[in-house]
Amino acid sequence: MTVKTTNPIFEKLGMKYPIVEGGMTWAGTGVLAAAVSEAGGLGIIGTGYWHGEDVRREIKRAKALTDKPFGVNVMLLSRHIREVFDVIIEEKVAVVATGAGDPSPFLDELHAAGIIVMPVVPSVSLAKMMEKKGVDAVVAEGMESGGHIGMLTTMALVPQVVDAVDIPVIAAGGIGDGRGVAAAFMLGAAGAQMGTRFLTAAESEVHPNFKAKILKAKDIDTIVTGNLLGNRARVLKNKMAKSFVKNEVNELQKEKPDAEAIEKLESGTLKRAVQEGDKDGGAFMAGQISGLIHDEKPVAEILEDIWAQATDLMGVENTTK
């Protein structure tokens, strides 16, 4: 059987490679998203808890660098989502990826504006619910990913989601080279998403300390915070991450554990990692494949090399050459 390496959505977007940039708050800037889209993937601007005008600024930075379609990742827990969606619709962004919730209340207006909607899902049931509500694709993300994560691994989650829904499934989590991308297609996915791999791209604007930490990382160098009190997030090990986990354990031993007090410890730490490179106090959100990344190179080269390896492994023609 021939492996199908594209899907109607990617074809509509005119993508050269079936590869999407994962939504990364602070790290997924307009500049990086533009570089990914310009090189033939689908760049995604990460927006976290931003206000609408912050999102507009990054969209404008991306538009200044590329005419190709790109997306915006919206964190649905944010208090500012109404204004963020208004900006996205005004700016005619091509794709909305969503995390942490249900985008369906906004689906009609996004579709009316011609925007493709693809939520990130951590389980089969959520994927099925999203399909029923009419989203265009789902990103099935395994817990190998950096940042906020679910419980299942990519290897287990993706084929089960693929079997459960009829819309395109994009595999995410633990994909950092052509082997991972080929594996995603073998699992039945219609595309692959990568986040961490792009953090060390030449166009990535994360602090040099962040890039250095990924390049130095080994397989065992990530840790999951929030395991005990919710909001699980994978970060590179450092003082902040280790003390966070210790504090969680201590808090749980109290008669009335205060989850909010623990979550406060995390406040602002991602920005400190991305923009200030705060080695001890930052939350360096990155995936388990950090140990697989050994070089900093332009996005175009990353995509070209990965797709060459993936197509070779899958035995399909590399039509991008």
Partner: peptide, 22 residues
């Protein structure tokens, strides 16, 4: 939270209704 999605999904199917995830 994943169990709850599973429940909501089944409730949607069995009762033929739509629920919000949140």
């Amino acid at each position: 939270s994943l169990d709850l999605f599973e429940v909501l999904n089944r409730v949607e199917d069995d009762f033929d209704i739509k629920l919000a995830v949140a």
